[in-house]
Design a protein around this nucleic acid. Sequence first.
RNA 1: GCCGGCGUAGCUCAGCGGUAGAGCAGCCGAUUCGUAAUCGGCAGGUCAUGGGUUCGAAUCCCAUCGCCGGCUCCA
Length: 647
Amino acid sequence: MTVNGSTEFIIRCEGEELKVRQGETFLDLAERAGWSRDVLMVEVDGIPQELRSPVPGPCEVKPLGFESPAAREALRHSASHVLAQAVKRLYPDAELGIGPAIEDGFYYDFRLGHSFEPEDLEKIEREMEKIVEEDLPITRHEVSRQEAFDIFSRRREPLKLEILEEIPAGEPVSIYKQGEFIDLCAGPHVPSTGYIRAFKLTSVAGAYWRGDEKRDMLQRVYGTAFLTREELEQHLRRQEEIRQRDHRKLGKELGIFSIQEEGGPGLVYWHPKGGVIRQVIEDFWREEHRRRGYDIVYTPHIAKLDLWKTSGHWDWYRENMYSPIVVEGVEYLLKPMNCPFHILMYKSSLRSYRDLPLRWAELGTVYRYERSGVLHGMLRVRGFTQDDAHIFCRPDQLEDELVGVLDLAQFMLKTFGYEEYDCMLSVRDPHDKKKYIGEDSVWNQAEAALEAALKRKGLAYVRDEGEAKFYGPAIDIKIKDVFGRGWQGPTIQVDFNLPERFDLTYIGQDGKPHRPVMIHRTVLGAMERFVGGLIEHYGGAFPVWLAPVQVKVIPVTEGQEDYAAEVVKILKAEGIRAEGFFGPEKVGYKIRQCQLEKIPYMLVVGPREKQSGTVAVRHRSKGDLGPQPLSEFSQKVKEEISAKSLD
RNA sequence: GCCGGCGUAGCUCAGCGGUAGAGCAGCCGAUUCGUAAUCGGCAGGUCAUGGGUUCGAAUCCCAUCGCCGGCUCCA
């Protein structure tokens, strides 16, 4: 249909039909339909589009608000442009790097002589406010390569030229303009700077250009943006809550661990409270492994250099290993992994096909040199205890064994309250096969086995190129904590290479030697990292079965100290970790201390309880539960402990 | 390792050129009390370490160590 020389057509939007003239944009439509600026983008036949793009023809349109990931990214990406514009206004010499939206926010990288300091962020923020106030239209322009080259040469943006060169031929080159600011950018963006109503710059940091440590270090400014001030503030409060749960803070407050400057960085001291947690986990771990047909082994901490040459570690892993220790003229290395030791044990006798699979588990303490800048509390350390195991099996047993490991991993994660996780199939970097040992065929075989096991378990997974270990591909399970943050969890690696290098064999039914396959796996990862993660997951409030002190008995006055001591004695005899809280302080004070220590149960005993042989139970989160007979209470706690209840 | 920030009492932090401060914790004393802090007193620091500038440095400069936020790397 043609009206006044222009064509009209009908689009559908949220169940309504709307008339659109040829050449109109979604923004025109938005204005006509009276959409608020909460609409950041539209979805056109299922594909997100920016509001400034023209309506292509009859289609189904859906407005996208901040809850849509695409729209949220567009808003934050636009915020990064506002940041860049502000920086260019204040520091005209700054060269633009890249400025994407990221999870929870955005950043922009700059190269300039001046180093940004925290106070500079405030200045930049104020300039950003002005740009938002100016409500500059953000417009997209497709240009030729030559035009783009001219623009960014003229504007002296060498980093942008570098990016331009890397845009594959045939792909359109687009630039975005807002006021005097121009960026090479694929988009999409929100229609104008005024859409960015709630933002905050959060930090500055160095970042290598293109993530390559051989190239210049740029200055990265991080920020975040939300639709409204309230959402922004809610986010900042949540960040604060996460900081409050930091395992380094809680670990110190709760007496779980420390790292001593005099002792050296990245080396963890497990204090008594942490010792209890670790021991309970380890006991559970051993028991569960025995149940599943594993044998527990122990191996040394150092071995001759030659062993590490045979295993390939000396050639492929040396940068993470400590320098040799010379003993009687022979060089020894501190172990960064346990596998060669288990292999030596395997070789210590002749193995029959009937012996396989052999499942050998070890809580093996290893030492790895980590660069100083990467160390982080218990989560990234230089000495740690892996809950390691190596399964030696026949090729025909491989898939079943992998499924068995996946079962165990799922069981363990569930026990600790990790309900959500993502499975990654970590394979070689196809562009850099030199980083790995062994033949292609062997790698393909290993990969196929891992894939088959994942499929049998019905687990969805993502291929992660370049994430394989040097000796084989792996299934890496990323667990998610209460805040939805990802942690490295179980890892399961199939290895045909080390059996080859060490010439491992078993005698088959045919009386001839055959090559076994090895599975390397950890379920918890490392005790340090796992417990560090648990501290944050639980916010320091360990479930009763793990809590270092499960019950604290609080006498109301000195007159009940004898009864309290008796209660503690009885609970201890029942295997419950109970302590008395004696001293002249008032009950309120003692309860507060216990709450801060996140002790699951407090038993208040005054004259009434002493008289009747009861205890007044208070739970750290449920509050006062009233009096009950001691035996009833201890029975309930014991049940909770044996059920490994997560309450 | 790299970029930036920070290191003051056991802990959390104030002081930022003129002779070291608070709260909590600790110790002593009083208080005997019923579900998130009873009161009073005492003690506690070569201001990370080593150099330098200055009449004078916790404070300014340099180096080293450590920590924090990132980058790169990883269980």
